[in-house]
Simulated scan of single mutants.
Amino acid sequence: MSKEAILKNIRDSLQQNTINYTPISYQSPMKITQSNLIEEYKINQTNNKAIIKECTLDTLLTTLQDTLKEIKAKEVLYNTDIKLPLENLQSDFRLIPYTKSIDTMREQCFGIDTSIVKARCAVANLGIIGLSSNTNAPRLSSLITNTCIYLLEKNSIVENLYEATIAIKTYEKNRSGGEILPSNIIFVAGPSRTADIELQTVFGVHGSRVTYVLLY
């Protein structure tokens, strides 16, 4: 929408004492270079240094178990909105549901090495994951551990950031049964990276050092 159109809407609204709303027509400035969204997403997410493992819903639990064994997980924090029989996982690690306030499990949380988080969607043309926080998926679960494993459904991949924001808002409205939106909408590109004045890259300052995406 042009500046002139916006100003005209404001002038008309002031005269009528009502607010006129014209739906925004969004066009992504980035082009899809691959033949489909999944391939576009995989390339861009890999470029963002995340490790992608493809599987199906039927093999997701096995792939998750193999990944946890691969990274030698000891303690695994998971959000309770994950609809998988995690209790069927066979390994030496300990599963910890994220059901308590950080104030009551602070010392425990900072010693946990791995977390499992259900992604709401992914953005193909940026190679990022979309998350939302709520009582069943606290924000800290994707930040506090050295390794974070995201579970992502292939049919939740969208083309651009605008579509991802709409998808996350729709998910939260359906979950809450109302118009309540999450306190946080988060987009994760990959492992946390930052650089000091000498351009030395440091991993893990603002989130996990290692990011896995199980794409099913």
Rank of each mutant, 00 (worst) to 15 (best):
N48R: 14
N48K: 14
K49V: 11
K49H: 14
I51L: 15
I51Y: 11
I52M: 10
I52N: 12
I52W: 05
K53P: 07
E54K: 09
E54T: 14
E54D: 12
C55R: 08
C55K: 01
T56M: 05
D58N: 09
D58T: 13
T59Q: 13
L61C: 06
T63Q: 05
T63A: 04
L64N: 01
L64D: 00
Q65V: 02
D66L: 13
D66R: 11
L68D: 07
K69Y: 08
K69I: 12
E70G: 06
I71Q: 09
I71T: 03
K72I: 08
K72V: 06
K72L: 11
A73F: 07
A73R: 05
E75M: 13
L77D: 08
Y78M: 02
N79Q: 06
N79H: 10
T80D: 09
D81M: 01
I82G: 10
L84M: 14
L84S: 10
L86S: 07
L86E: 09
N88T: 15
N88P: 06
N88K: 15
N88F: 14
L89T: 10
Q90K: 15
S91P: 08
S91H: 14
D92Q: 14
D92H: 12
F93W: 09
F93S: 04
R94M: 03
R94F: 01
L95W: 04
L95R: 02
L95M: 03
Y98C: 10
Y98P: 00
T99Q: 11
T99K: 15
D103S: 13
T104Y: 07
T104S: 15
T104A: 11
M105V: 15
M105A: 11
E107F: 12
Q108R: 12
Q108Y: 06
C109A: 14
C109G: 10
F110W: 09
F110S: 02
I112G: 03
T114N: 03
S115V: 02
I116Q: 01
I116A: 02
A122K: 05
A122P: 05
A122F: 06
V123K: 06
V123S: 08
A124V: 08
N125K: 08
N125A: 05
L126I: 11
G130F: 00
L131Y: 01
S132C: 07
S133N: 00
N134A: 04
N134P: 01
T135R: 13
T135Q: 12
T135S: 13
A137M: 09
S141G: 07
S141R: 04
I144M: 06
N146Q: 10
N146L: 06
T147S: 11
C148Q: 13
Y150C: 10
Y150N: 09
L152Q: 11
L152C: 08
E153Y: 05
K154V: 09
K154F: 10
K154Y: 04
K154E: 12
N155Q: 11
S156T: 14
S156C: 10
I157K: 11
I157E: 10
